[in-house]
Design a protein around this nucleic acid. Sequence first.
DNA 1: CTTATATTTGGAACCGGTTCCACATTAAAG
DNA 2: CTTTAATGTGGAACCGGTTCCAAATATAAG
Lengths: 328, 328
Amino acid sequence: MKVTINDIASRAGVAKSTVSRYLNGGRISAATSEKIKRVIEEHDYEPNSFARSLKSKKTGFVGVVAPALDSFVTSKTLIRIDDELRERGYTTLIINTSHSIERELESLQNLQRQKVDGMILFATELTPQHFELMEQLTIPFLIIGQETKRTHCIVFDDYKAGYEMGRYVASSGHKQISFLGVQEEDVAVGVRRKEGVIAGCKENGAETVSFFRGSFDFQSAMKAAKENFSNTSSTALICATDTIALGAMRVARELGYRIPEDISISGFGGYTVSAMIHPSLTTVEFDHQETGVLAASTIEKLIEGEEVEKLQRPSFSIREGESVKGKK
Amino acid sequence: MKVTINDIASRAGVAKSTVSRYLNGGRISAATSEKIKRVIEEHDYEPNSFARSLKSKKTGFVGVVAPALDSFVTSKTLIRIDDELRERGYTTLIINTSHSIERELESLQNLQRQKVDGMILFATELTPQHFELMEQLTIPFLIIGQETKRTHCIVFDDYKAGYEMGRYVASSGHKQISFLGVQEEDVAVGVRRKEGVIAGCKENGAETVSFFRGSFDFQSAMKAAKENFSNTSSTALICATDTIALGAMRVARELGYRIPEDISISGFGGYTVSAMIHPSLTTVEFDHQETGVLAASTIEKLIEGEEVEKLQRPSFSIREGESVKGKK
DNA sequence: CTTATATTTGGAACCGGTTCCACATTAAAG
DNA sequence: CTTTAATGTGGAACCGGTTCCAAATATAAG
């Protein structure tokens, strides 16, 4: 049978409240402290976390809601968050919503009911319901990937990332550039990143920047790429994610273009696989480690009641591959 | 303030034990049942899961321990397990061990302490400590990916999968074939799959089958591939995973081979990205959906005390890509 | 050596449920 | 119209901790 606080108390000849105090760092004389310590070790006692949570209202759980687990960005960040939170004594409760906004909102509510100490959301789109829910929230909340004034956010500077990539491509000599982007509901990627790319291209020598909208998946990327090839004579194709870039590469090849000799292609995300394929993809590499560490420490501080900056921006860099070639 | 079972009981004019019985499906007259139902809905009451677990010894948690979250196979399966368990009223506790066997064993112990109702392990290697731990386990346990008589397992028939791929390649005319495999500690992939491939090749016309051992990562795959090219004149290269195949493709290209004209390459895993690259990879596609469903229903049955077959095998199929070409 | 103050400790109530048991009520059987 | 069995309900104990308060002990000040 499992050993309880009562067993420890009677074994040590003290009241269970004393043991509880010992466990939670109350004032205890050195003598009893030593005594209790020995008994606990002897029976390798572990407090029952449910009983503990029941009264104390603290669960030690942090909920993390993500639209997908099979995404490079999410999984990399998640692993780090999980690692960091574990070290800090929290247990991460990972919830996958399979890209359903409904399930996302529902999960956030459920987590609150389950009395997690804090929640982290990998956001793709912030709807009015999100804001409504945030109003009613009584626990610390942190958003990763999108930006709003209404709560704490960790998000890359997508405008700047876009700008840097735009500049990189334009200053290697490309005059006609296309951007394959995504829907504007995802403000970070669909708006900021796009605007950054356009500005970066235009301010560094590009003459025209065409825009084609698709979605995050491979199929839609291929469709957008086809549109591009039949409507422009761009020599470079900047894609909003590495997946989109892979779609564009496939279409380019099917149409007989050589990469990068005939058409340069770049992406965003720095996926591992992007470096493995041929030609390897030039892409913006986001620092997911930093994001994870930042997220974990932020939610912890919020739970502890400390102040944290509302908006934090992890770093990124351009990873040069073989898919972009100088033009001129 | 949060509404409790006492509030509901007094509002409904019954004892809280009656409410509890209502919630857990005991005998209740239609009249009181109706009354309680109304009050509960009115106050949208949700029982406190901690209080519930405290007495009932059931937590509703199922622990899942995985070596990595950023793996195609794991994440696909995990998502499905999570989905299925949620529907059955369980909460999945996902633990990532970052490929550390120590952390794996530690996590399994921790989960048991946290009183999860059951555990699922994505195994890569079963050590004596694993078996020792399994002896002491008091809760249902399920292994995915490796096979042992000592507990319940869900694992693909790696021998058969290997055999099918070997046959596919050999019967398309290749006489000299190489297999890039992994260490034997991973019995499923390192031994069974390898043996299947060799048998499948030899029994279908292959003259020589060379073997090169690497590891699961890209770098080591490239190293093994280089060894192959400098020591054999194989016309086909069967790789133990898609990642290894990607590494082999890169090396082949660097050495000036065209795929599949000069060298055919195939993998195992059916990664999404394998269909996106050029040439798309011929690979064995495992049914991760089925694995997930099977895992969830199995652990549930075990928790409920039902009988389940000790060994279950999900299905797979060969997905033809452009990377293997008929030879003759 | 008192008296006032601070530190330790034990006891009891409580957190929000579940479960066991006894009692009341109703239905079925004789 | 009893007697017996089945069903429904309330009360109390319990799960394993935390927390508040008062009592006991130790320490400092006068």
